[in-house]
Design a protein around this nucleic acid. Structure first.
Lengths: 268, 268
DNA sequence: TTGAATAGTCTTATATATTGGACTACTTTC
DNA sequence: GAAAGTAGTCCAATATATAAGACTATTCAA
């Protein structure tokens, strides 16, 4: 959905170390996180420095993880990246979450049908994550990398995903880093929460020129059986789209949203 | 490719514990492995018993992992399964390994075009793994779950994936559990290695009635830039397929194999 | 309601994983 | 070929994560 100013996935937060030694599991989480934000393989020898971790620890853990298949180490440069096994686990996730599976297909269909960039988003802590995206057929491609994370207040989807969340919880969810708008202004949490809650009755959300001056975003919720917003589908559009086409896209999106959502229609 | 007698993914091996306490990382690996072989969410309270691990450890680790997003804990039953983040990491793997990405597409295309069940396989230790599969249009569907693991000696793909591997290494790769054929007979490693090496010159591999009496498998290698067999594409077919159609399928498969492989054509 | 079973939390001790750093092996540079 | 740098291995010490188990909370049955 709404697109980031930069495609570079931000470094991503992990729990702070509380002493001179750090848990193996935490090191692994940071390693994964680093690899993803790196966007590709990293040299094994670089990792200790990049992660602020001792050489011995990293060499040990990479050994274990690559032996298991979660990581792969390649070439004489010892390039480290995610391995087959993690891919298979990801596939298991997909099989178990058909909302996501069906959402993906819907995104593809919408993009193909309308020619507009379409995305499937979810929430991870205080950010939305682009889970799947299909660029439209416009000459100027507005693309966001899969996996890129954007603070919830920056996006239309974010408002939908928090539409059922009470103020206090919203406040708890948003990390300090998620409380600044793209233009640098701080987020007024109360006002933001109000915007979110407005969408309890209003399935479509729209933000205009929020992340980029020249784009707008139109989003619809996908709800699970319990009626909670689990994900959103959205279009990323140029701001100057004709009124009529806009209507059409809104209709399509609503239709898609209803087709995928699993009932309990809290958002009508 | 070749299909398993049972769809149930086997428990999968992990490094043995060497004392009264076990490393956190190892517990995590076992947990992941268990979840996958379980085929779906498991109750949190069951996990300590299922993994032979202390309650406190598992509760602790699941907390960390679910907070990170690698696992998700749902409902009042506390059902534990893979989370969004692991899916995103899997997607990163896919982006970095376009052999797999293109192989998937090819499998879909082949299945659609020929109506036969088609699969993409890789190797993980002594087993092959089905990375992607598309069932054919036959009334009797021969399906293998994505992620299911089959000992290399049971499959045509296995022979291709070991075609460049020296006997000693093959012997090291095959775990005890991978050295028994479906009918219970032990694998003659030397003979098996010879079969594998035969495929250095011969791109197509075929096994008839090996896993199931009524099916055969036809496989072709996918090589990386270094000319190593990284994966295979294959058809799973009934044994009684007409000679003529067989020829056609062989041609298709060869063509596909050449289209995807990244050169260094060690296998001609 | 009581009782029993199941699920989850918290604390404390000790077995060991993490760490620093010395050492080796390998590359690159001059 | 020597020197300097880079990559990887190995070992021993101690900070702490794992584990045991007591405890609390919740669910279910009668």
């Amino acid at each position: 959905m709404d697109r980031p100013l930069t495609d570079k996935t931000p470094p991503a937060k992990t729990r702070m170390a509380r002493g001179p030694r750090e848990r193996g599991v935490d090191r692994v989480l940071k390693l994964f996180s680093f690899l993803q934000s790196n966007g590709g393989p990293a040299r094994l020898a670089e990792l200790p420095h990049a992660l602020g971790a001792p050489k011995s620890t990293i060499y040990d853990l990479v050994n274990i993880l690559s032996e298991a298949g979660l990581l792969e180490v390649r070439g004489k440069e010892s390039n480290v990246y995610f391995g087959k096994l993690i891919y298979l686990y990801g596939a298991s996730y997909l099989r178990a979450n058909d909302i996501v599976a069906r959402g993906r297909e819907m995104v593809d269909a919408l993009a193909k049908e309308t020619g507009e960039t379409s995305e499937l988003c979810t929430r991870l802590h205080g950010k939305q994550v682009i889970v799947h995206a299909r660029p439209g057929s416009r000459p100027l491609r507005i693309s966001s990398e899969i996996g890129s994370r954007i603070p919830l207040p920056w996006t239309a989807s974010g408002r939908l995903m928090l539409s059922q969340t009470p103020l206090a919880e919203i406040s708890a969810i948003l990390e300090p880093e998620d409380r600044t708008m793209p233009d640098g202004k701080p987020v007024d949490i109360a006002a933001f929460a109000a915007e979110c809650h407005a969408h309890t009755q209003l399935p479509l959300a729209r933000t205009v020129g929020m992340i980029s001056r020249f784009t707008q975003c139109l989003a619809a919720p996908i709800t699970n059986q319990a009626g909670q917003v689990e994900a959103t589908i959205c279009f990323v559009l140029p701001i100057d789209i004709p009124e009529e086409k806009m209507r059409m896209l809104e209709a399509k999106l609503l239709e898609a949203s209803e087709a995928i959502s699993l009932g309990g229609d809290a958002l009508r």
